[in-house]
Amino acid sequence: MSGDKILNVDRLAMRFGGIVAVQDLSFAAERRKITALIGPNGAGKTTVFNCITGFYKPSGGAIRLTHDGGTTIALERLNDFRIAKQAKVARTFQNIRLFPGMTALENLMVAQHNALMRASGFTFLGLIGAPGYREAEKRAIDLATDWLKRVNLLDRADDAAGNFAYGDQRRLEIARAMCTEPALLCLDEPAAGLNARESAALSELLLSIRDELGTSILLIEHDMSVVMEISDHIVVMDHGVKIAEGTPREVRDDPKVIAAYLGADEEEAAAVMEGGS
């Protein structure tokens, strides 16, 4: 494995009381590439995600994020909202967390909160209607419109997000995360609950995010057709440890991976073997 790494996870450990959820996990995600984190249910994937995005504080290990300019940030030392604000790591959730009572456009405007706060002079300039803020708001609306177009929801911009169909909510959540203009986009099971057609559209969307915008993506996914099709690199976890990593082809043929999936769930094992071939 060579190349420019955006994320380096080094000997990450997470314990909840006596339960070890993640142990001695090391992997890296390359810049402008899609890295997938897979594994049977309960392998500790979401725990790793929560450590990277600041929702948990890791019990041990280091998580380093290197920005384009070369500055490196220790994510395990940043907490809470600062990971999204300073380290520019955006995430989506396994169980979609939109703002259901706000419109699609408003959801995307909230995502640009920090940029707009600066533009509004921390509210004071905005309150008196300074022209600079109006310009910034217009640009924010343009960016939001652009993303609504990309995820094919432009005609529903003024509808409440809570009224959207499941697949649309998933796409809107990705658009909202992208409106924070992240360096690393973390997606927690973006294809869960999507039908085959929606999954294909999702793959296309993620590839376009990687190729056109150069955003690095880290994703957890169970839908192997998506994982095998779009991932550049796959990390396989089971019971809190890494059991394999490599290209989709390498991982698919790895006997340890097949054993882990066979031991966990026959359907998933079959999916691993068939997916992407």
Binding site: A90, G101, M102, V110, T180
Partner: peptide
């Protein structure tokens, strides 16, 4: 203004707000 939208977003979902850097 962004602050007001953030208030309402906070009412809707605090965890999502944190994930967006608010």
């Amino acid at each position: 203004l962004p602050i007001g939208r953030a208030w309402e977003a906070l009412r809707e979902d605090e965890v999502a707000c944190r994930a967006l850097g608010i």
